[in-house]
């Protein structure tokens, strides 16, 4: 349940669910996010600019010309614990193809050296993991997924790369992610997916949703090029 409600500046409200990074806690954050969104759609709350779920917090950005911190706090505290515990609907499991060929999996050797596992063991564990999307953000469509098997724990690069290809499947510490765009970055690159995670021209511009699950499967370079 919500541990505390705090203001974040004069147009922000933080719902803090405690310090842990755990799927059970994050599911409650996402439930609250959905409840607030439902209230926005039904015009029960006005003046909300954004609601951002993260591991253990829901941060609401409101328009002070329309609603005050006190009014919004009341609405948030009126949400019942039992509503947060309801099982999320429409949680999907996505199967995402990844080309793990050397051309794209440029940090496999580094991960292997760090973990002491062979490259085939690493790829096997990665494909057997059911990842949970804690949140999407930083840039459009970027999923923060966990939890990576402890055996694959590898720190970030000391010096981030200037450019990582779009579609790169990356790991660091207990997380896995995919870059929707070309970007600088310091995570370890395990492979590349031809699937577009974000496209502003598409009807469903963002493929993934917080609370969804993701599994990866291997494709070869030829298949990658066909799908890209």
């Amino acid at each position: 349940m919500i541990k505390q409600i705090l203001n974040f500046g004069d147009q922000g409200l933080i719902c803090d669910f405690g310090d842990e990074v755990k799927k059970e806690i994050n599911l409650k954050v996402i439930s609250l996010f959905k409840i607030i969104n439902f209230k926005i759609k039904n015009n029960e709350i006005q003046g909300i600019k954004n609601c951002t779920p993260s591991y253990n917090k829901l941060i609401i950005n409101f328009n002070l010309e329309v609603i005050s911190f006190q009014q919004l706090s009341k609405i948030v505290t009126s949400v019942q614990e039992q509503d947060l515990n309801k099982i999320l609907e429409n949680q999907k499991t996505w199967k995402i193809p990844v080309c793990y060929d050397e051309e794209y999996g440029i940090d496999q050797k580094r991960i292997s050296e760090y973990t002491g596992l062979s490259i085939s063991e690493i790829l096997d564990i990665h494909q057997k993991t059911n990842f949970y999307i804690y949140m999407i953000g930083f840039m459009p469509g970027f999923p923060y997924m966990g939890d990576l098997d402890d055996k694959l724990y590898t720190p970030r690069l000391e010096t981030p790369r200037v450019e990582i290809l779009d579609g790169s499947v990356i790991i660091a510490e207990k997380f896995c992610a995919i870059y929707p765009y070309k970007s600088p970055g310091g995570w370890n690159i395990l492979g590349r997916t031809p699937i577009k995670l974000f496209d502003q021209h598409s009807k469903n511009p963002c493929l993934l949703f917080p609370g969804d699950n993701v599994e990866f499967y291997k494709i070869n370079l030829e298949e990658f090029k066909k799908l890209a």
Binding site: D19, Y55, N56, K57, G137, F138
Partner: peptide, 30 residues
């Protein structure tokens, strides 16, 4: 910190100790 939602105007301080104020096109999570 554990990454969390950003609101414009947030003043974050990375390890360098030099503050960065996040403006309108800020990243969504930091």
């Amino acid at each position: 910190i554990k990454s969390e939602g950003i609101i414009k105007g947030s003043i974050q301080v990375p390890a360098s100790g030099q503050p960065i104020i996040l403006l309108s096109d800020h990243q969504t999570i930091g």
